[in-house]
Amino acid sequence: MKMFDPHIHMTSRTTDDYQAMAAAGIAAVIEPAFWLGQPRTNAGSFEDYFLSLVGWERFRAAQFGIRHFCTMALNPKEANNEALADDVMAMLPRFLEKDGVVAVGEIGYDDMSAAEERRILEHFELAREFELPVLIHTPHRDKKRGTERTLDLIRDAGFPEQLTLVDHNNEETLPLVLATACWAGHSIYPNTKMSEARMVELVKQYGDERIIINSAADWGVSDPLKVPKTVAAMQEAGIGDESIETIVWRNPIEFFAQSGRLDIDADASLPKVDQSRLWEGNSVLRGQDPRIDG
């Protein structure tokens, strides 16, 4: 089974995680730029973080045969620091040019403040300018209302719904998202956002169209193997492999390929791990025992 985890914050994870993810069949990841858990005090901190998403983290993933892409944005929480937010917004165009950036995100509401709303609209404009899809985070608190407001804002701004992935859905928000042309993401996260068993029920009820799952693993109590674990739960519940593969491979590829920058062929066989092969035009000649799958 080919698997894609299209929302995971690898910067916060270890090489053990990468190893386990590769062994479980995860062939590609998307790392959205986000909140690092404590406030950043200057724009330079954002710049270094963005650079590590397109540089160092990409290389770390490649060492385990995992393709790494990212999304770039000012995250919702930090949109409320007006002075800092201006500096970060000014920096974004330079990063949206970069090759491994496949969407604008994650953006959205946190406190549902006016400052957050203004920044969401500015990100829509950037997405239009750079012809990129957007990844939208929905708030933890007052989630249903937050999701309704998010969907209203997308419609009012005239941003194309098929270019929008609304993430962290639950039983109450999924039908709202599916009633639009937006894609629906689900973060399978211990104890809170969504569990494997609940996800199985949602797939049974709503099918696989525009449905995406991810681990949203980060620096909190989270699990980078939630995508393969949910695949196992779906198989056990008798959901067909064709449908599962649509959810964990074809759907995320179809959505993010709208960027024109996701050079993964959805129908290609699972990329073989060959640490000596060409990456980004350069041979990664591994000194220490290159791993080459037959």
Binding site: E47, L51, V54, G55, R58, F59, R94, K98, D99, G100, E280, G281, N282
Partner: peptide
């Protein structure tokens, strides 16, 4: 300083 891997290379 401001490049990704392939820009630096």
């Amino acid at each position: 300083r401001s490049g990704d891997n392939s820009e630096r290379e």
